[in-house]
Amino acid sequence: MIGFRLAAQRPPDAQRVTDTVVMRFDHVYEVDPALMTEHTPQQDLPAWDTHRIVDSRWEHLAWMHDHFADSVLSGEELLAEIEAEKKEGEP
């Protein structure tokens, strides 16, 4: 049986991001647990479980792109091209 590994994988302490949101891992936001005390009972999540949820979310989004089209174009690249063309056009 695989034991519960919270002790081995205790997530780092939360840092405040906004009045209502905290963060334990880079770019992984969590609603401030203080706002979830009355109607939504909380449970401890080991770090690996948070990573698993975040990874499957990214997997799902990649799946959805691929489901609809063969490729995804980049707006950043197009903006860079537009900027470069502007510069070329400048006297």
Binding site: F68, A69, D70, S71, V72, G75
Partner: peptide
């Protein structure tokens, strides 16, 4: 089936 998707 679309070859390309673009969202901004």
């Amino acid at each position: 089936r679309p070859e390309a998707e673009f969202s901004a």
